[in-house]
């Protein structure tokens, strides 16, 4: 009896999902019929004027840190929230080591690759407005360093090198710094998170010190994301 019930339930679920898929297919079909590729004036404006208005060559960066910087504040808050939740849910008691012992090759390679990762992460952050990259990507690369340490040497070693409290502090400083940099716009008489509009000196486009506040915002987001992801990873692995 229960088996039939289960079958029926499964059929029911499949029917529901197929209905959803058909519904979405109708959406795509309708959109395809509409054929309105012309309605992209916002992005066309960004493409034609973005470099001049913000000073950043990388348009994704200019959207993230200038036109829609408020979204970035929101997502930085989301990471901070997740890190706070994880450090709350995980007891501070004892950290567990991973059982595996690696060969010397793994340890040496890890040691060897850490400086390169650090350079790559910092480069991605600082050249975020000039080349592919930016605070988020750079932060993720930076967070790989503590994650690698955790995987190869265990949580205890990783946390003795980079204290959780320090990481939390770095994360909070990144978030506060982002808001303070945003408030610079208010101080100079423009709006919150203003950069291109507040004339912080777009500089010569293509140089490292250009695009006003964008590099500094990148740094803040970079250290924030790096620290946040490291906290999240270590918290998840600590749980026995």
């Amino acid at each position: 009896m229960s088996k039939i019930n289960e079958r029926l339930k499964k059929l029911h679920t499949i029917a529901l999902v197929v209905a959803l898929a058909v519904f979405l297919l109708v959406v795509v079909y309708e959109i395809h019929n509409l054929d309105n590729n012309s309605k992209r004036y916002l992005s066309e404006h960004y493409i034609s004027e973005g470099v001049r208005e913000t000073g950043a060559i990388n348009l994704v960066t200019s959207v993230l840190y200038d036109y829609r910087a408020f979204d970035t504040l929101g997502e930085a808050t989301v990471i901070l929230t997740a890190a706070a939740i994880l450090s709350l849910l995980v007891p501070v008691s004892k950290a567990t080591m991973l059982g595996t012992k690696f060969s010397i090759i793994v340890y040496q390679t890890t040691k060897f690759s850490i400086p390169f990762l650090a350079v790559l992460g910092v480069h991605l952050i600082f050249f975020g407005h000039l080349s592919p990259g930016g605070g988020f990507v750079g932060g993720v690369v930076l967070s790989i360093i503590p994650i690698l340490l955790t995987i190869t040497y265990g949580v205890e070693f990783s946390e003795s090198k980079l204290k959780p409290a320090k990481k939390k502090l770095v994360e909070d400083i990144g978030a506060i710094g982002f808001i303070l940099l945003g408030l610079l716009g208010v101080v100079t008489g423009s709006n919150f998170l203003a950069n291109g509009q507040a004339n912080f000196g777009p500089g010569n486009t293509g140089e490292l010190i250009s695009a006003g506040l964008i590099p500094y915002l990148n740094v803040m987001i970079g250290i924030k994301v790096g620290a946040g992801l490291a906290i999240i990873f270590n918290s998840l692995i600590k749980e026995k």
Binding site: D66, Y67, R68, A69, F70, D71, S190, F192, L193, Q197
Partner: peptide, 12 residues
Amino acid sequence: VYSVGGWGLLGI
């Protein structure tokens, strides 16, 4: 209306 970043309709 308060325009974040001062971009008006281009921003948030």
